[in-house]
């Protein structure tokens, strides 16, 4: 079938189709209830992210000041000293500050891009703007992931070895007499458990970003590449 034949078929599509036609009032209503565009959606996601972090901070404070003292009393873990609690608290504060700083830096970059007066009738400019925004968002997302993973490594390692030392003392185990196999079990347990935690966090974050914007970003980049091929 030749394209010219299809062209004549296309011309027979009724653009005045009554099922599709909207009147001025309906168009006005659609405008009033307009959906967010991609930049606005990212802005909304950042605000949600900040809310989640704030919730996380509150939860952290609750755990540190309410649940941990109860836990300490009931389970008799003498190694949870005041000094340790202080350092654990400081570690959390540093983590929250790092995450907040990352988000604020991203917010500044995002606002800068948003303030640029982009001519939306220019496809190349529009593609570039969305790609820049999404790239910044992706970088922020993975920096936050790295910070969280470092936090997991620090808190899991300290927790694991404190419990280990405590158990050694409680059970009166002589570490000098521990066999190679015994050491291997301890190290393996540590590495595997930590690895599982890191993998879960990494996969969840990665999956979340890829499902949310990954495919879209790839598609935009490929469109821009296609546009620049013969139109640099």
């Amino acid at each position: 079938m030749e394209l010219d034949e299809l062209k004549s078929a296309w011309n027979k599509i009724s653009s005045d189709n009554k099922m599709l036609l909207l009147n001025e009032n309906e168009i006005n209503n659609l405008l009033k209830n307009r959906t967010l565009d991609i930049s606005e959606k990212i802005g909304r996601n950042i605000r949600i992210g900040m809310g989640i972090i704030l919730g996380w901070v509150c939860l952290g404070f609750g755990i540190d000041f309410i649940f941990t003292p109860i836990f300490e009393k009931n389970f008799n873990k003498p190694y949870l000293t005041d000094a340790l609690m202080f350092w654990s608290f400081m570690l959390e504060v540093v983590i929250y500050l790092l995450i907040f700083t990352t988000i604020i830096i991203f917010w500044i970059r995002y606002s800068k891009i948003e303030k640029e007066k982009i001519d939306i009738t220019n496809l190349k400019n529009k593609l570039n703007m969305i790609i820049r925004t999404l790239n910044s968002y992706r970088i922020m997302f993975y920096i936050v992931l790295i910070i969280i993973i470092l936090y997991i490594i620090a808190s899991f390692s300290s927790g694991f070895f404190m419990e280990y030392n405590y158990q050694v003392k409680q059970l009166g185990i002589n570490l000098e007499k521990l066999s190679f196999f015994g050491w291997a079990i301890i190290v393996l347990t540590f590495v595997v458990t930590l690895g599982i935690f890191i993998a879960i966090y990494y996969l969840l974050f990665n999956l979340f970003f890829k499902r949310l914007y990954g495919r879209y970003l790839k598609q935009l980049k490929s469109t821009l590449k296609e546009l620049e091929e013969v139109n640099p």
């Binding site: 079938m1 078929a9 599509i13």
Partner: peptide, 22 residues
């Protein structure tokens, strides 16, 4: 369902098939 509506006066099964193919 909606977009492929051809005005009644132009309706032709072959044309609709061509459009679906296109």
């Amino acid at each position: 369902k909606n977009f492929l509506q051809i005005a009644d006066e132009h309706y032709d099964e072959t044309v609709e098939d061509q459009l679906k193919l296109l």
